[in-house]
Design a protein around this nucleic acid. Structure first.
Lengths: 184, 184
DNA sequence: GTCTATAGAAGGATAGAC
DNA sequence: GTCTATCCTTCTATAGAC
C-alpha cells in the first residue's frame, strides 16, 4: 500500500512546512527539498501550489461538514456536548491543517470551500447552547477560537491530557442551559 | 501638526493591509498604491519592510510591557482582574497590530522583541490566578488567545459592548481562587 | 514519474535626478 | 522628500528529455 508514496510524502511535508511558516512563507522549493524531489515533481502531482493546499485541507473540511450534519439532529445540551467533543477531537486530529486554516491570510485569499462560513456560525451557535444572550455568543467564539489556538501552539506541557482539559474548559465556560438575554 | 503626515499615512495603510492579508501577503507595492506614493518613498521613511513592521508593532509591545510591570505589584484576585481588564483594553486599542502579531508566521520569522515570550507566560499565569491546576492553565490560554481572535474577527455584531462582554466571559471561565491540582 | 532548464512575473531594495 | 528606473533575487509554473 505504498502506491502514491511520493504524493503522500509531499502532503506530509507541505503540512509540516505550511503550519510552521505559513502558506505564503513556504515556497515550492522548500517543500521539494524537504521531500527530496524537484519542484517539477510537486507540480506533476498537484496542479498548483493552491491545489496542494486545497488537497491538504480538504479532508478536515469534509469531517467538519460531517460534524455539522450530526449536530443538526441534536438539540439542547446534547447538541452542545457533541459540538464541543466533536470539535476538540477534530482539531486535535488535524492539528497542522488547523494551523494553516487559522492563518487568516489563507482564509481570505485562497479558493474557498463553499458554505464553510455557515458551518462555522452553526458551530458557534451550538457552543453557545443557542442562547439569546450576546455574552454567551462571545463566550462561544472565545472558546472556539481559543481551542484552535491552544492546540496549534501546545508544545506538550507535562503530558497532560489536552483533550480532557479542553473539553473541561469548554464545559466550564459555556452555558449549561439556554439563557434569556442578560440585561446590563 | 501634519508634519510627518506621509510617515503616518504609511503606518496606517500598512496596518490595514498587513492585518488583512498578512505580512508576507502584502507587498511594498500594495502599500505604496494604498498610500499614493512610490515604493522608494516607503523605503525612505523606513529602512526595510521588516523595519516598517517593527515600527508598527512597537507601541503595542511597549504597552504590553507596561501592563506586565503593573501586574508585578499585584497578587491574588486583584492581579487577575487587572490582567484581564488591561489585556482586553490593550487588544481593543491595538486591534490591527494584534492581528499582525497573532499571525504565528510573523512571530517566528521577524526581528523579535526581547523577553516578549516571558511576558506572555506571566500573563497566562495571571489569567490562571496562579493556580497549580493544569486545567486552569489551559483555561487561561484558551481565554487569552480566544480574546485576541474574537477581537480580530469581530465585525461589530449588533452594537454590543465588546469590552464588557469579553471581561465578563473571562471572569466566568477563570478560577476566582487559586485551586490545588485537580485529580482525575 | 521524475528530472534539468528556463520562462515570466513579482518581490525587496538601491541609484540618482529633481 | 519624492520620484523613475533599475538591479538582483526569488517565486510559480512550463517545456521537454529521459
Amino acid at each position: 500500500m505504498t502506491r502514491n508514496h511520493t504524493r503522500e510524502d509531499i502532503l506530509a511535508e507541505a503540512a509540516r512546512l505550511f503550519s510552521r511558516a505559513g502558506f505564503k512563507g513556504t515556497s515550492l522549493h522548500d517543500i521539494a527539498v524537504a521531500v527530496g524531489c524537484s519542484k517539477a515533481t510537486l507540480l506533476y502531482h498537484f496542479a498548483s501550489k493552491d491545489a496542494l493546499l486545497v488537497a491538504l485541507v480538504e479532508p478536515a473540511v469534509q469531517e467538519l461538514l460531517a460534524l455539522d450534519d450530526r449536530l443538526a439532529a441534536l438539540v439542547g445540551e446534547d447538541a452542545r456536548t457533541a459540538a464541543v467533543d466533536g470539535f476538540v477531537d477534530l482539531v486535535l486530529r488535524y492539528r497542522p491543517q488547523v494551523t494553516l486554516v487559522y492563518d487568516s491570510l489563507q482564509l481570505t485569499e485562497i479558493p474557498r470551500f463553499p458554505g464553510i462560513d455557515a458551518v462555522a456560525e452553526r458551530l458557534v451557535r451550538a457552543f453557545a447552547g443557542h442562547s439569546a444572550d450576546p455574552v454567551d455568543d462571545i463566550a462561544a467564539r472565545v472558546v472556539l477560537s481559543g481551542i484552535c489556538t491552544v492546540v496549534i501552539e501546545h508544545a506538550d506541557s507535562g503530558g497532560i491530557d489536552l483533550r480532557k482539559a479542553l473539553t473541561t474548559v469548554a464545559e466550564r465556560l459555556l452555558p449549561s442551559q439556554p439563557r434569556p438575554r442578560q440585561e446590563s
